[in-house]
Simulated assay, not measured.
Amino acid sequence: MKFPTVTGRDTAGRQLTLPADLDGEQTLLVLSFHQRQRSLVTSWRQFASELCDRFEHFAYYELVAVGSRHGMLPPSTVGGMSPTNARQHVHENTIVLSVDKQAFRRRLGVLGEETIYAFLLEDGRVVRQAAGVLTPSTGQALEALLEAYRDAKGRSNGSTSAGESSS
């Protein structure tokens, strides 16, 4: 499934178009719908940060989907918080999406807003998804996917150079 094209703002106020403006050949997006879910998102943060350090092709973002009227947020709010409070409550990789939440959920194939969702993207396509907090088995599966991607990329790069031997 292709990740829906949506616009959002990062913590510096820059407008981004997702998934085109995201870094990483493989990108993990952790999506929340309510401020009270920030602690659930935190369960992913340290692990994702460690993966970013280990895999140069990997990037991580936290998405906050807020409801919108005509797709616009008042300039003094970021997800229903003042800009000062927002900086204290969101991670530097947070992107706030002002979207029609029901339509956005439908396009992603998620049923409700009761929990958070994690999506692994490759070339703008969702290749894996999970609901809820990070579990050991989900973490191991994500790590295995990143390793397999890196290894396959390394093999394809090594085999394209004629006359070079891999050691």
Score class of each variant (00 low, 15 high):
60 Y>W: 12
88 Q>A: 15
84 T>R: 15
74 P>M: 01
64 V>L: 14
55 F>G: 01
57 H>W: 02
96 V>E: 00
101 K>C: 07
53 D>W: 00
96 V>A: 03
53 D>M: 01
92 E>V: 06
94 T>H: 06
98 S>Q: 02
63 L>K: 04
76 S>Y: 14
81 M>P: 05
101 K>P: 00
61 Y>L: 05
91 H>Q: 11
65 A>T: 11
78 V>I: 13
99 V>A: 08
102 Q>D: 14
57 H>A: 08
92 E>I: 03
67 G>D: 11
89 H>W: 13
99 V>G: 04
100 D>V: 09
57 H>Y: 11
78 V>K: 00
51 L>Q: 14
63 L>M: 08
77 T>P: 03
67 G>S: 11
71 G>W: 12
54 R>Q: 14
65 A>M: 12
85 N>R: 13
97 L>A: 08
66 V>C: 09
60 Y>I: 08
52 C>D: 11
75 P>I: 11
71 G>E: 10
72 M>E: 06
104 F>S: 14
94 T>I: 01
95 I>E: 05
72 M>W: 00
57 H>Q: 12
63 L>Y: 03
67 G>K: 09
87 R>T: 04
79 G>D: 09
92 E>T: 08
102 Q>V: 06
91 H>S: 12
50 E>C: 02
74 P>E: 10
65 A>Q: 12
74 P>K: 04
90 V>T: 12
97 L>F: 06
76 S>W: 15
68 S>T: 15
72 M>V: 08
58 F>K: 06
53 D>C: 05
97 L>M: 09
79 G>H: 07
102 Q>M: 12
98 S>V: 06
81 M>E: 11
67 G>F: 04
103 A>T: 12
64 V>N: 08
92 E>D: 08
55 F>W: 01
71 G>H: 13
97 L>I: 08
72 M>F: 04
75 P>Q: 13
103 A>Q: 15
59 A>H: 08
52 C>G: 03
83 P>I: 11
58 F>Y: 13
51 L>D: 08
86 A>E: 05
95 I>G: 04
88 Q>G: 11
70 H>Q: 07
95 I>M: 06
82 S>E: 12
51 L>A: 12
79 G>S: 11
97 L>R: 09
77 T>S: 12
60 Y>A: 10
89 H>P: 00
104 F>E: 15
82 S>G: 11
77 T>W: 10
56 E>Y: 08
78 V>G: 01
99 V>W: 09
52 C>N: 03
83 P>E: 13
96 V>M: 03
57 H>K: 05
80 G>C: 06
85 N>P: 00
92 E>S: 09
68 S>G: 13
91 H>P: 01
78 V>R: 03
62 E>C: 06
103 A>Y: 04
56 E>D: 13
60 Y>K: 07
52 C>I: 00
84 T>Q: 13
88 Q>K: 15
91 H>C: 04
53 D>N: 07
103 A>H: 12
97 L>Y: 00
104 F>T: 15
69 R>V: 10
94 T>L: 02
